[in-house]
Design a protein around this nucleic acid. Sequence first.
DNA 1: TTGTACGCGTTATCAT
DNA 2: ATGATAACGCGTACAA
Lengths: 339, 339
Amino acid sequence: MTRIVDLAKMLNVAPSTISKALNNKPGVNPELRKKIVEVAEKLGYRRNPMAIYLKTKKSKVIGLVIPNVSNYFFGKLVLSIEKCLYERGYQYILSNTDENEEKEMEYLQTYSTYDVGGIISVTALVTMKRKMVQAYNSFLISGKPVVFVDRIIKGLNASYVVLDNTGAAFEAVEYLVKNGHRRIGVIIGPKGVYTSEKRLEGFLKAVNTFGIDFREDWMVKGEFSLKTSYENVLNAFSNLKEIPTALVALNNMMAMGALEAFKELGIKVPEDVSILTFDDMPWHKFFDPPLTSISQPIEEMSILSASILLEEMRNPHKKKRAVVLKGKLVERGSVLNIK
Amino acid sequence: MTRIVDLAKMLNVAPSTISKALNNKPGVNPELRKKIVEVAEKLGYRRNPMAIYLKTKKSKVIGLVIPNVSNYFFGKLVLSIEKCLYERGYQYILSNTDENEEKEMEYLQTYSTYDVGGIISVTALVTMKRKMVQAYNSFLISGKPVVFVDRIIKGLNASYVVLDNTGAAFEAVEYLVKNGHRRIGVIIGPKGVYTSEKRLEGFLKAVNTFGIDFREDWMVKGEFSLKTSYENVLNAFSNLKEIPTALVALNNMMAMGALEAFKELGIKVPEDVSILTFDDMPWHKFFDPPLTSISQPIEEMSILSASILLEEMRNPHKKKRAVVLKGKLVERGSVLNIK
DNA sequence: TTGTACGCGTTATCAT
DNA sequence: ATGATAACGCGTACAA
């Protein structure tokens, strides 16, 4: 590895001059600077982030908290965020929390020892809210910005980038009503989870607005997982005297669970029940039937969150931003027009 | 952040004593050690990896080269590897190469400045092989182990963990033959890609062994991507006078591409053509028809590669290991028995 | 058991 | 405009 001192010796100048030249600081003869840059390039000099941090205390490493990279949505998020960061010379530490708050707390701890300069977080499903708030707050008060993506923790003065979950859920129901459905069920996620609650809020608002039937026993708890959703849908629909004509899944795992349960029960989709799910996936079009889904602007979310974070790292007293993006309903074959 | 000196002051002992106590080294009074561990715990002391590295030159950061985390297979791989590493106090730098060798080279460069202690690599599709070999070799000769997963670069003395691609492809064809198929096509990946070549090798071996028909124009180039596969299958099957009764896709993206092309051409799966694909995905069972797939032991691959790497980091002169794992054929509905 | 020098590459500061 | 050099940080090895 070529170092600044190596370049200095090579060119018979002082290390400080090399440093100034490479960092575009004033006080270097333009010709000399050009030569220095040239030689640095040729010898493949690369700045040493550790040493720079040692000296300047400005870390170019950011913490990236994600529930689970093997989920397509989060994988894409990581991918685009990495791209943004890499282009600007930042590194990141990826932390898979597995939706486990304790694990998330653990990871936040390690961030201190690695001196991350900021955090982008899709925070885990929260129950021990107080501790979590405290943990994130300790970063915020020490001037390290945090940007929340997809999910918010209330009571924290941090920027965030989320979907208009309420609006999207409203539109989902509206679409079903337009297709003649008046008996609509829903598979919900865990209590206290931001996305689930917001989506349910929009769902209920629409039910109210359009004055359609709604029953408590058409609301199935799915815990945002395939297995739970499968079990609870199986249970609910085998006991129901009157089943809804359509079902909204508040995430895609739960839609798969429902599909599996329906297959077992001999309930045909969409003939017997229509399905509409949150989170569009590239393979939904190959499903039987092709799944009508709500797609999220993942790329936009990633780019926004990364640039907001970087901006706040540069300028710690910047006003926090609250970004809410629109979803898009992708029509396919899992919703039947029963008008 | 509590530091060793803080603990030392607090307990009126020397920093070196604290260090020894916390690292289970001899030369500390058992009672004192107990007290030190206790106080360290209470004050939330966490060792500083940077400082340890500074002193010992032993980095606990490892480089993780992955084509694309948003691909389920690689996402799972990252997840399990992270788990292994985290448990033993290691951190990792994730690098998405996007199957781009130049990007991979770039990332390998940054590894030097972050002083990674070792590398786990699913290396990108290689054409500039020489440069790549050189890059990895420079790590190997400086005593930093590299473990290749899923794909191998020839001419490198490094451990690897891969699937028995040839065997799995052979079994795929064998299964089709058992179901009465004698005209079998294949969608292949890019030239020079380890997994594609090995799988094709097994395919051809089986064709030979079972003495079934094979034609050059039943071999479609899919480049391991949905789009290319779609285009080429569309093209090939609209010109073919006689189409095969079954098609093996050498990865799941290409299977989706074929599915899309068949839909457009009005070719029914599995009535007109059976499909069998590499890479089982959790959603394949919901496809129309449910996709018969070859599943890989992702978890096992991850755990093995992580432990081999860690072992070699501890013991640099350990003999390199070559691990080949078996795939498993998951029967579903996309292969028709035409006997 | 203690005290302390040392390791690293960069950069800020002050002198020339 | 350029040079010389002292930090910067924290854990550890080694001599006492």
